[in-house]
Amino acid sequence: MLRIVLIRPGSTDFDEQGRIKGTLDIPLSENGTYQVARIVEELRETPIDYIYTSPCQAAEQTAAAVALPRRMRVRSLDELQNLDHGLWHGKLVDEVRQSQPKVYRQLQEHPETVCPPQGEAVGDALVRVRNAMTRLVRKHRRGVVGLVVPEPCASLVRSVLKHCDLGDLWKAECEAGGWQLIEVHPEGLAATT
């Protein structure tokens, strides 16, 4: 059986300020560095065979820290790039809630139907993530794979792997510095084009 250790990178300044980071390439904050050290310690006894990361600084820094004591190579997966929030990049989550309350609510209730202005539709990102996870599961049928993915993309990965709802992507947007172990049943994953 394949198990995935889904790791959220340590926090960035934007996470701590409640700002939407999306595809912005932001390094770990001081607090994020401490979170990563905690994650590394918590995962010290967990065997990990491969580590993949989203292509962004905070995820790459987190993945490198997890890989270092294992002397492992980190592989970057472009398909795990965070959602492109378009014109929402850098805005406070509260700004969007106040200026676009209908869209804010829609992203909570039916996230797959939302497309940020000049950004990527959540439904399209979900298809991208589902296809990436399907390929990853085909490649690694058993063992333990570490995936370092920032929110809200991590929520999409979790939804695909656990066959569950996306949850509140606004709440997830600023969550960082955690991990969870997911058992994957490969027969349940199917790529969508």
Results as ranks from 00 to 15, higher is better:
Val148Lys: 08
Thr46Asn: 08
Leu6His: 07
Pro150Gln: 07
Val184Lys: 07
Thr113Cys: 06
Leu136Ile: 04
Thr192Met: 15
Glu187Leu: 00
Gln98Ile: 13
Tyr52Gln: 06
Val149Asn: 00
Leu147Pro: 01
Glu183Val: 03
Ile26His: 02
Pro116Arg: 00
Ser76Val: 15
Leu68Lys: 15
Pro150Lys: 02
Gln81Phe: 02
Pro9Ala: 15
Val160Pro: 04
Ala65Ile: 06
Gln106Thr: 05
Gly178Ser: 06
Leu156Thr: 12
Thr12His: 06
Ile7Thr: 04
Arg71Tyr: 05
Val96His: 09
Thr193Asn: 13
Ala121Phe: 03
Leu68Met: 14
Arg3Tyr: 07
Gly22Trp: 01
Ala37Trp: 00
Gln81His: 11
Cys56Leu: 14
Asn31Ser: 07
Arg73Asn: 11
Gly22Phe: 04
Ser99Cys: 03
Ala121Pro: 14
Ala154Ile: 09
Thr62Phe: 04
Ala191Asp: 06
Pro9Cys: 12
Arg73Tyr: 08
Glu16Val: 06
Arg70Lys: 11
Asp124Ile: 11
Pro69Trp: 10
Leu24Tyr: 00
Tyr34Gly: 10
Tyr104Leu: 09
Val137Tyr: 12
Val160Ile: 13
Arg8Phe: 04
Glu30His: 13
Arg97Ala: 04
Asp78Asn: 08
Leu136Ser: 03
Gly188Phe: 14
Asp94Tyr: 13
Thr53Ser: 15
Val36His: 05
Gly32Pro: 00
Gln61Tyr: 06
Lys139His: 04
Asp94Glu: 15
Leu169Ala: 13
Cys174Met: 11
Pro150Ile: 00
Gln98Ser: 04
Thr134Leu: 10
Arg75Trp: 04
Ser155Trp: 09
Thr53His: 01
Ile39Cys: 11
Pro116Tyr: 13
His140Gly: 10
Pro55Asn: 13
Arg128Pro: 08
Leu189Gln: 09
Pro101Arg: 05
Cys56Arg: 11
Gln180Cys: 12
Val137Thr: 07
Gly146Thr: 00
Glu151Thr: 13
Leu136Trp: 02
Gly178Met: 05
Val103Asn: 06
Asp84Thr: 00
Leu77Val: 09
Ala176Pro: 05
Leu169His: 08
Gln61Glu: 15
Met1Val: 03
Pro9Gln: 14
His185Ala: 02
Met72Thr: 10
Glu41Tyr: 07
Thr193Tyr: 14
Leu68Arg: 15
Asn31Arg: 12
Asn82Lys: 03
Pro27Asp: 01
Arg19Tyr: 04
His110Leu: 14
Ala58Gly: 11
Ala58Cys: 13
Ala172Lys: 06
Arg130Glu: 03
Ile26Arg: 01
Val144Trp: 05
Val148Cys: 12
Gly123Met: 03
Gly123Phe: 06
Arg19Cys: 15
Leu80Ala: 00
His163Gln: 15
Gln118Val: 14
Leu156Glu: 10
Glu45Asn: 04
Leu147Asp: 05
Val149Ser: 10
Pro9Leu: 14
Asp13Pro: 01
Arg44Cys: 01
Asn131Gly: 15
Arg71Trp: 08
Gln35Phe: 02
Leu92Ser: 06
Glu79Pro: 08
Gly18His: 02
Trp179Met: 07
Glu60Ala: 04
Pro111Thr: 12
Val129Gln: 11
Gln106Arg: 12
Gly10Lys: 10
Thr62Met: 01
Leu6Asn: 07
His85Tyr: 15
Val129Asn: 11
Asp84Ser: 12
Val103Asp: 13
Glu183Cys: 11
Pro111Ala: 09
Val148Tyr: 03
Ala65His: 11
Gln106Cys: 01
